[in-house]
Design a protein around this nucleic acid. Structure first.
Lengths: 206, 206
DNA sequence: CTTGACGGCTAATTTGAATTAGCCTATAAT
DNA sequence: ATTATAGGCTAATTCAAATTAGCCGTCAAG
């Protein structure tokens, strides 16, 4: 078992629940199944553990950005799909986006940790915004742009349409992060939101 | 000068910037213009200062709720105004809401503090949600309900319409909290959002 | 078969921040 | 005028948490 890796995982879990300052190195060690001083065989300090988590996050984020081809000339790999976007498909898209963000273990923990630690370090709030505001808006804008081009949605301002699509998702997400018991309620609202969105922006003659 | 009050103000400022754990009692004292031990003439402990801030927040929040008559039989005092809601008025409503939340010193600091500390204590996340999610949605829903009744907006689901109105405001707000330099950009998007909102929900024959 | 590095442990040690002790001055009430 | 209280200060003290010292067993390479 890779202790060095385990330490990062358990530390991230704890940091995301209680924040850096409220987690003691002994807590991390206990969850890994060792004693606090043994941590220092793997990392120079508590801060170094935190830094390693961020480094790994950066790495993953870069990979993901590359995988999504966001910057490349070819924005969406399977563009054709989005030209024939039905209400059901839109619904599925929104729900899977929401549920992925909400339930993916790593993503959720990172998001919570960034939320807690963001005001300590501008770099963290920048990462948060890129991950949960700017990048989703950019990506979905490209996507909804295709749908619009395909004629399934109509607007003269794709960016605002994207804002209308995504911001409820974002708000419901922050709601469920704070209170997971409200997930069913959030899902109901999400569905109603997307149906309404489709009605508002969908072609009248659809 | 009311030192006891000053302490709460300076402590809130610091807590909202750096989080409880990263603020030292000496920092608070320094800003007030005294030495750390003197704080203890006014509050039993650092935690007691934090609690006092929350107590005062609760108090204000109660007052505000009462002033808005949210629970009372009479939801909006000057309901008539809202029956004749033009695009410009809607715009003004949204902008003033946004700018109030964003710039009101006390509100902003409380929001940032709750954001940082929320995962430590469920009570804090509950307050946050009430203040920035549930209460605004309830209030605006009542308001937009009136507008709808007046015939200036059309929908079969006021709650979703309200979600569509408010969630972009919410998202832009959290964006500006993280990076105040993006306020102009946010304001532009806010305006475009509301104009588009009005187009989408406004009566076709307006 | 022995050596050295890896990774664990217990028992210090360090550190730094919160809190307490105890003193001093000003002021307001008796 | 005396005294009590409020509120400030400096100099301890406490305490918890991070880190270091130093020991030990295992195991793979030579």
């Amino acid at each position: 078992m890779d202790t060095k890796q385990r330490i990062l995982e358990e530390a991230l879990t704890l940091f995301s629940e209680k924040g850096y300052a409220n987690v003691y190195v002994g807590d991390i060690a206990a969850r890994v199944g060792i004693k606090a001083p043994s941590l220092y065989k793997h990392y120079k300090s508590k801060q170094a553990i935190f830094n390693a988590i961020l480094a790994k996050m950066d790495e993953r984020f870069m990979d993901q950005a590359k995988a999504l081809n966001i910057n490349g000339a070819n924005p969406i790999p399977d563009a054709e799909i989005y030209k024939h976007m039905s209400e059901e498909k839109l619904l599925e898209l929104g729900k899977s986006l929401f549920l992925y963000y909400l339930h993916d273990d790593y993503t959720q923990k990172i998001r919570k940790m960034l939320t807690i630690e963001q005001f300590k370090d501008k770099r963290l709030s920048d990462v948060y915004m890129e991950m949960y505001v700017d990048e989703p808006l950019r990506y979905q804008s490209a996507l909804l742009g295709l749908v619009t081009a395909g004629g399934m949605l109509t607007t003269d301002n794709v960016d605002i349409m994207t804002l209308h699509f995504y911001s409820p998702i974002y708000m419901l997400l922050t709601m469920c992060d704070r209170d997971p018991s409200r997930e069913p309620e959030a899902l109901k609202m999400l569905e109603a939101h997307i149906k309404q969105f489709d009605k508002l922006y969908g072609r009248k003659d659809k």
